[in-house]
């Protein structure tokens, strides 16, 4: 088995729609998705969480607030999974709640 990192990105969200019920449903979706991977014994690491705020250093000492000022999709966080090949890893990425919000999941193999 090889390891793959799943990076999820989410577009900006319509905050005026956020409701208690929706939050409950959303947390459940994340849990179900990770839980499903984990129950197959394929979760290697549930990663670290990144704060959405930070800075970006660019050439010439230019520092901007970011990282998501210039990009439409902000990088959320990531998990590390185990799979036989990238096809299987991609299959496991299905159901990631970031997709429901119009975001994406990037699947990247980890070098041994």
């Amino acid at each position: 088995m090889k390891e793959f990192v799943l990076l999820f990105r989410q577009p900006s969200y319509d905050y005026s729609e956020v409701s208690p019920k929706e939050m409950q449903a959303l947390a459940q979706k994340w849990k179900d998705w990770v839980g499903n991977i984990s129950s197959q014994g394929k979760l290697a690491d549930n990663g670290i969480r990144l704060s959405l705020e930070g800075k970006v250093l660019k050439p010439g000492g230019v520092i901007t607030d970011g990282p998501f000022v210039e990009i439409k999709e902000r990088l959320g966080s990531f998990i590390v999974i185990k799979a036989d090949n990238i096809e299987e890893a991609t299959t496991l990425a299905h159901g990631c709640p970031a997709l429901d919000a119009g975001g994406s999941v990037e699947i990247r193999p980890v070098f041994g």
Partner: peptide, 15 residues
């Protein structure tokens, strides 16, 4: 505050 809760939903769901 809404974004705080969105991050909580994601983070607590995973971790």
């Amino acid at each position: 505050v809404s974004e705080t809760f969105l991050v909580a939903a994601e983070t607590w769901g995973v971790k």
